[in-house]
Nucleic acid binder design. Structure first.
Length: 872
RNA sequence: GGGCGCGUAGCUCAGUGGGAGAGCGCUCGCUUCACACGCGAGAGGUCGCUGGUUCGAAACCAGCCGUGCCCACCA
């Protein structure tokens, strides 16, 4: 360490992340550590494809949590010498992005229709060029060690090729088809959306009962509906085939009020005879169930509500009204005709668009669909066989249940921004051409008047290709060979179906292998008050503000600490705990680095080689334990390394970081550093070596979760040889586990604590050193120093016992307080003895509990009794 | 309607069969030469309720109460 660095370290008594993070990140980028060569095999390498954020997005807590988890694993594996790739990029996010640009246009008083498709799409690209990399920059603030040189976008040229190839192959296999079918129509975006983009909400509507006269009789069938306006499109009335009340009417006709259309009365098992009157009006054009029934019975499909949510020319007098207006008008007309039998409040689940928030209008339209059964089959097997492992375990079940009932996927969207469907229609011979590249002429008639399909693909169609399209598929690239399948995916559970399942299906179908080995479904971080974090509710907490305030390491630590398996409220205290830890590390390091005596012969070029590849620099300083406390520290450290590693590998990030915290605060700082301070100040080389060794390992162990502070401290370490990012991740060394030293020092620590507690309870002045003698053992020097007792026996009468220690009378001691404390201790012991005795008198316990447990209880009783006897 | 969670200290959460834990907050004492974003010592829980299994239950089982999420085509 040169003089300037030493001075910097001496003067900086607090860790200040703000000044450091940007510089450290720039060093990493300059070093090219995040940009691996495409060499090796997927089995040897480690790779992760980031869930691509929307180009319109700003980093939110979900990203920050997700990113913290991925980065922890990515960094750990990189430090293990694996060729590690974390690929990132953004999603074109059809609806969201189109909405942002349309809003801009509106502010200028323009619409996209005025602009025209081509100009509009150009405009969106311009927007993307200007703002699209914002979120990528924000990931850097978090410290995410992505390969920023391999950034991808779901609409870049290579990606478009992949999408076209997939579409064509699925079409050629007969999975993709075009059909007039009932879809979830979102009047807000004026597009069809998939089942997964619909959310059901409880709504209270009116349930209307309407009389439909039966033709040729004076009977009526009373039907119930919450959507009376759709009656204009009714094409039948259905009853249950076993319903005797109506058996004689099946086959005859009703007359539709207001319209006069003849409606066949049909029998279908779907109808519940218990509900209402047991007669159901059938509207195949505007109800998914009725649609199914209609197809079963070959009913006419009439559509009265158009894509704009208004009634069309089929609606006669009601044309042009909105659905709500039409409802009022239809009800009024029915009432006038005396057909309205009743009206009552009715609460039920109603579909709403996840995208626009508007109520879904189910209607029949011409869309592109993808049949999923065949694709799902191997994707089910992959998860059943744990080729793709989903954790926590309950999500495996959820995945399999959903996949078992998978339905066709509506993949077309009536938008302009996105992958325009690679289908062309021939204007001359009606041929439909599906091609990867724009065709010159019709292959059937050689005609050249080809018109491309207007619709674009669902954004998730391209997202589904993410793990392999980003690696260059469909070309056989070095990246694909080195990094596919990827190793790990972490995701929020809400996109398990929307995204994860589809990647598994597409991965197996196209590159021919699963897209990732492990999926970890993480918990949701809620707002501080337990509500959802959401922009619209104003409950979001901005991770960048938190980074600004406490540092990226603090936020990362906090989020990981919060992320147990259950959903959890955002906790400022956990983030603060992270910044406390960073500061603690910084200051403990200052103590070590400014006082340790380092000489080159400590650096062990002959360090034992283990499994860490040569490409990774390994630890360079060897410890020199000479006391039990040294061996204790090293033993505790190795245990911590083993445990933290195990937790990280099991995606148990919360416990991993908490254990790091406990080791640094407890074992290292509260005890070991306090214990060895005298030796350190004397310049002892042995303890210096041990401390530098321990610090190196601690920094490496913590680097995956707190990369900035550890990298910065490492820059002051005398053994430093390059950045910490590529330093070897510590492997626990079982040779350093020392049970004897651990037990011995643990006992001395316990004694120190009880001596301190005793003094506090008796009210001894903090600085007073109390005379005492100790029976039977010669404790380490630190026990007396840290508890401020002098075990030299200089003093008068013993006045109290604390374990093996006899405290001697001195003027600092208040006799009354001492005897008070003594009495309290007697009470405690009596209670404990009573408890243990009762337990041991229980015959069932002695007979059935494991011998070790009984023995332990006997030992305790023994100890309590003898302590009580000593107190007199 | 089906499924999955959760209910533990004032707050946020750990803890899957052998004497209730962490962080924050609170109380008391310390400007001890790494750190006052610090150090030391404490107070504070009939572990939602009721039954059951067990020598032993916060943990396992059943029921109930409260609460959250996912899936679902009864108008």
């Amino acid at each position: 360490m040169d003089a300037a660095k030493r001075q910097q370290l001496e003067q900086t008594t607090r860790y200040e992340p703000g000044e450091i993070e940007a510089r450290v990140f720039a060093e990493w980028m300059e070093g090219g550590y995040f940009h691996p060569d495409a060499t090796g095999t997927p089995a040897e390498n480690f790779s992760v494809a980031i869930p691509p954020p929307n180009v319109t997005g700003a980093l939110h807590m979900g990203h920050a949590l997700n990113g913290s988890m991925q980065d922890a694993l990515v960094r750990m594996n990189r430090m293990r010498g694996k060729n590690t790739l974390w690929i990132l990029g953004t999603d074109h996010a059809g609806i969201a992005t189109q909405a942002v640009v349309e809003k801009e246009l509106r502010a200028e008083g323009k619409t996209r229709q005025e602009l025209g498709r081509e100009a509009f799409v150009e405009r969106v690209w311009a927007w993307k060029e200007e703002y699209g990399s914002r979120i990528v920059e924000q990931y850097k603030r978090l410290g995410a060690s992505c390969d920023y040189e391999r950034e991808r976008f779901t609409l870049d040229a290579g990606y478009v090729r992949a999408v076209h190839k997939v579409f064509k192959q699925l079409y050629d296999k007969g999975y993709i088809y075009r059909d007039n079918y009932m879809v979830n129509w979102d009047p807000g975006t004026r597009s069809a959306i998939s089942d997964l983009e619909v959310e059901n909400r409880e709504v209270t509507d009116s349930l209307f009962s309407i009389d439909y006269p039966v033709e040729g009789t004076d009977r009526v069938l009373t039907v119930a509906t919450v959507r009376p306006e759709t009656m204009l499109a009714d094409t039948a009335v259905a009853v249950n085939p076993s319903d005797e009340r109506y058996a004689d009417l099946v086959g005859s006709f009703c007359v539709l009020p207001l319209v006069g259309r003849r409606l066949p009365i049909i029998a279908d098992a779907y109808v519940d005879p218990e509900f209402g009157t047991g007669a159901l009006k059938i509207t195949p054009g505007h109800d998914p169930n009725d649609f199914e029934i209609g197809r079963r019975h070959g009913l006419e499909e009439i559509v009265v509500i158009g894509p704009d949510g208004r009634l069309n020319e089929e609606a006669g007098d009601f044309e042009g009204m909105s659905a709500a207006e039409a409802q009022r008008a239809v009800v009024a007309a029915l009432r006038e005709e005396g057909r309205l039998r009743g009206e009552e409040p009715y609460t039920h689940a109603v579909p709403f668009s996840h995208r626009s928030g508007e109520r879904i209008e189910p209607l029949i339209s011409l869309q592109w669909f993808c049949r999923m059964d065949e694709l799902a089959e191997p994707a089910i097997k992959a998860v059943e066989d744990d080729e793709v492992r989903i954790a926590p375990a309950q999500w495996k079940r959820v995945y399999l249940d959903w996949m078992g009932e998978i339905r066709p996927w509506c993949v077309s969207r009536q938008l302009w921004w996105g992958h325009r469907i690679p289908v062309w229609y021939c204007g001359e011979c009606d041929e439909t051409i599906v091609a990867e590249d724009t065709p010159e002429r019709c292959p059937a008639c050689e005609g050249t008047s080809l018109r491309q399909e207007d619709d674009v693909l669902d954004t998730w169609f391209s997202s589904a290709l993410w793990p392999f399209a980003t690696l260059g598929w469909p070309d056989d690239t070095p990246e694909l060979r080195a990094f596919y399948p990827t190793s790990f995916l972490t995701t929020a559970r809400e996109i398990l179906f929307l995204w994860v399942a589809r990647m598994v299906m597409m991965g197996i179908e196209f590159p021919g292998d699963i897209p990732f080995r492990d999926v970890y479904v993480h918990s949701v971080i809620q707002a501080r008050d337990g509500r959802r974090m959401s922009k619209s509710l104003g409950t979001g907490i901005d991770p960048l503000e938190e980074i600004e305030e406490r540092g990226a390491d603090a936020l990362r630590f906090g989020l990981l600490a919060m992320s147990s398996t259950q959903d959890v409220r955002y906790s400022d205290a956990k983030v603060e705990q992270g910044s406390d830890l960073a500061n603690k590390l910084w200051n403990a390091s200052r103590l070590i680095l400014l006082n340790a005596r380092f000489s080159q012969d400590q650096s062990a070029a002959n360090a034992p080689q283990d499994q860490v590849p040569a490409a990774v620099r390994r630890g360079t300083i060897q410890p020199r334990p000479i006391t039990p406390e040294d061996r204790w520290l090293l033993s505790r450290l190795e245990r911590t390394i083993a445990s933290v590693t195990e937790k990280l590998e099991a995606f148990d990030f919360a416990h991993a970081v908490q254990e790091c915290y406990a080791f640094v605060y407890g074992d290292l700082c509260d005890w070991y550093l306090e214990i060895v301070k005298p030796r350190l100040y004397e310049g002892e080389e042995d303890v210096s070596a041990t401390l530098l060794y321990a610090l190196e390992r601690v920094l490496a162990l913590l680097h995956p979760t707190m990369p900035f502070v550890t990298e910065e401290i490492w820059s002051f370490h005398p053994a430093r040889d390059g950045h910490l990012v590529t330093h070897a991740f510590p492997t626990a060394d079982p040779a350093l586990i020392d049970e004897v030293a651990e037990a011995e020092v643990a006992e001395e620590i316990a004694l120190t604590r009880s001596l301190r507690a005793w003094r506090d309870l008796v009210g001894v002045p903090a600085k007073a050193v109390l005379p005492a003698v100790i029976d039977g053992m010669a404790p380490s020097e630190f026990v007396g120093r840290l508890s401020r007792f002098a075990f030299d026996g200089v003093g008068t009468e013993p006045v109290a016992s604390v374990g093996p220690v006899r405290v001697l009378a001195s003027e600092e001691l208040d006799a009354e307080a001492v005897s008070g404390r003594l009495g309290k201790r007697r009470e405690e012991l009596t209670a404990e003895i009573d408890r243990a005795e009762r337990k041991l008198k229980n015959e069932g316990f002695v007979a059935k509990a494991p011998a070790a447990v009984v023995e332990e209880e006997r030992g305790k009783l023994e100890r309590y009794r003898s302590e009580l006897a000593e107190l007199g």
